[in-house]
Design a protein around this nucleic acid. Structure first.
Lengths: 235, 235
DNA sequence: CGGCTACTTCGGCAATTGTCGAATGGAGGG
DNA sequence: CCCTCCATTCGACAATTGCCGAAGTAGCCG
């Protein structure tokens, strides 16, 4: 495990907590993202579990950086004892040259995965079928951040090593922006998944645009972290 | 000025201070990097200057995150009143897809700059002349970080928009690693500057390798921040 | 030499933190 | 219904912080 990815993730988390308007809520966000209970975190820190709860609930307005440092290091230490999945995920995003608030995950699969299995794993409903029925990887993207911040050159880097992949856009309301963006990038991915809405909420022109560009379009409301965990079992 | 570059720089600084073994020294590092006096920072914070000095000197072992947040925001606020040079510099590095501890600066010049003027601006001594006598931009790189962390694909991204540029490697002892790295990248830049050593310290094979690959080689011991400021006047 | 600026050190003290541990509540499983 | 686990709230108190302001040092400039 690269120490530098761990260090950068630590710095990222610590910076976010320190600057947050609600540091306790931000601390809780990262703890739950790592799938760690307060009890487990407290054990790692060698404190009572009420200490963790007090901090997350905002009892102390300005905790010392010593406390924050120990909390962040404890999160990463627990992740490491579990195999380092979160550190790896963050490292993949960094090495692709993105910030983790734009790209949430970027992964190449060792073998082609049939789209049906992929959609099962993420509990997605396919709206339109595309020309290809498999994916070799995925990229999970915050759609608002991506559209407002990425240059057109950077947009292509979302493809990682292969365009034979699924792009999953999160924080989607109707799907208009991602589908319009897909109109202007060439080539298109094998699949586009819109996260955060159901069939009924989808922009009415989305299926037609997907058909024109030849990619599979799906929607899902699954829990992202759970889905990413399930995707690990595909390979 | 992009708010997101400011936010990311803030997060980066706050994370680094929070996780540091010597938070006071890290705080001082960033204050001096921004070329801000304690007196000026204290005025921005509306506290006595001894408050800033106490924190930087480590009087308090675990300052509260409220203090760190106000210090970081004050640094950026002062930078903004001066035109945002540091935020811009950080934004350039980020938008090139690098971490700022690998790439310190990356800039395209509006016009070609003669190498003589470039070397004057950074107080460098040319060791061998190359095939081209101008640069269209520069990239300032931490050589150890770059060599240990960048993939070969990422190495090419150091070129920004043009290979007609100078690559300046910092934290150099003899220059062996950067020169060896230059042997395997194609094309080579117009100039390579090794920062941190004089002619006498240079690896003996460096001039020959530069000649083979046809780039200008120079050494300098200038102050990086001063040099970057001077380079701004070239355009 | 005097004045000014930047910075350091330190005493002091009100305010806040770091943490324990008790009490309590909710959810899930046997 | 009981047990276990996770989480919250809060009183208590020793320890530390946040900051002022005084005194001092060093360097620069006229």
């Amino acid at each position: 495990m690269s120490d530098t990815a761990r260090e950068e993730l630590a710095r990222r988390i610590a910076g976010e907590i320190t600057l947050s308007d609600d540091p306790g809520a931000t601390l809780r966000k990262w703890r739950t993202d790592f799938d760690i209970s307060q009890t487990e975190l407290a054990a790692q820190l060698d404190v009572s579990s009420s200490v963790v709860s007090d901090y997350e609930s905002g009892r102390r307005e300005s905790p010392g950086i010593g406390v924050i440092r120990r909390m962040v290091n404890a999160l990463l230490a627990i992740d490491e004892t579990r195999g380092g999945g979160h550190i790896r995920q963050f490292a993949r995003v960094l090495s692709a040259g993105f910030e983790s608030d734009i790209v949430h995950d970027l992964r190449e699969y060792p073998t082609a995965v049939p789209l049906d299995r992929f959609y099962d794993a993420i509990d997605a409903t396919e709206i339109t079928r595309g020309k290809r029925d498999y994916v070799n990887g995925h990229t999970v993207i915050n759609s608002i951040q991506a559209i407002t911040r990425l240059s057109s050159e950077e947009f292509y880097r979302l493809y990682g090593q292969s365009t034979d992949r699924a792009l999953m856009f999160t924080d989607v309301t109707r799907g208009e922006s991602p589908l319009v963006a897909m109109r202007v990038v060439t080539p298109t991915p094998n699949a586009v998944v819109l996260h955060g809405l159901g069939e009924d909420d989808l922009w009415e022109h989305a299926p037609a645009l997907a058909n024109i560009d030849g990619f599979s379009l799906a929607v899902t409301n699954c829990d992202i972290e759970t889905a990413l965990n399930d995707l690990r079992t595909l390979s």
